[in-house]
Simulated assay, not measured.
Amino acid sequence: MNGIKKILGVVWILLGLATAYFGIAVLGLPKFASGKQEDLVFGIIIMLVLTPIITGGLLIFGKYSLSGEYDSED
């Protein structure tokens, strides 16, 4: 079971990196370039609030999983 947790740690880290890319390149930056006020507000919320929270949570969870913080002590 501990091996599965370590493998899932890698999965969480990869999901965190994918979320960072998606949040910045797909949702954030194109909204800044559109020129509309409602797109600008959405882009700011996505890039400065949601992307760091989601990405940080996934990366920290993956780091702890890889380091053995969630291992069973049987």
Rank of each mutant, 00 (worst) to 15 (best):
L48M: 12
F42K: 11
G23Q: 12
K36P: 12
F32A: 07
G35Y: 07
F32I: 09
I46R: 11
D39N: 13
V26G: 01
A33W: 13
I45A: 10
L40E: 05
T51L: 06
M47F: 07
F22N: 00
L48N: 00
G43C: 02
G16N: 06
I24E: 01
F32G: 11
V41M: 12
Q37Y: 09
K31Q: 09
I46H: 10
G23K: 13
L40D: 04
L40K: 08
G28S: 11
L48S: 11
I24Q: 00
P30I: 02
I45R: 04
I24N: 02
A18I: 08
L17P: 05
V49P: 00
A33M: 11
A18N: 10
G23V: 04
Y21Q: 13
S34K: 07
M47R: 04
D39W: 12
F32D: 02
P30E: 14
T19V: 09
I44E: 00
E38C: 09
V49Y: 01
T19C: 10
G43R: 00
E38F: 06
E38V: 14
A25I: 01
G28D: 04
S34G: 10
K31I: 02
G43N: 00
L27I: 14
F32P: 03
A20H: 06
F32E: 02
Y21D: 03
V49F: 03
Q37H: 12
T19Q: 13
I24W: 07
D39V: 10
Q37S: 13
F42R: 13
L29R: 05
K31W: 08
Q37T: 06
F42Y: 14
V49H: 01
D39Y: 06
G43M: 00
S34R: 07
L50R: 11
E38A: 15
S34N: 09
G16A: 08
A18S: 11
A33D: 15
K36M: 15
V26I: 05
I46N: 11
L27C: 03
A20R: 09
Q37I: 11
M47K: 09
G23P: 10
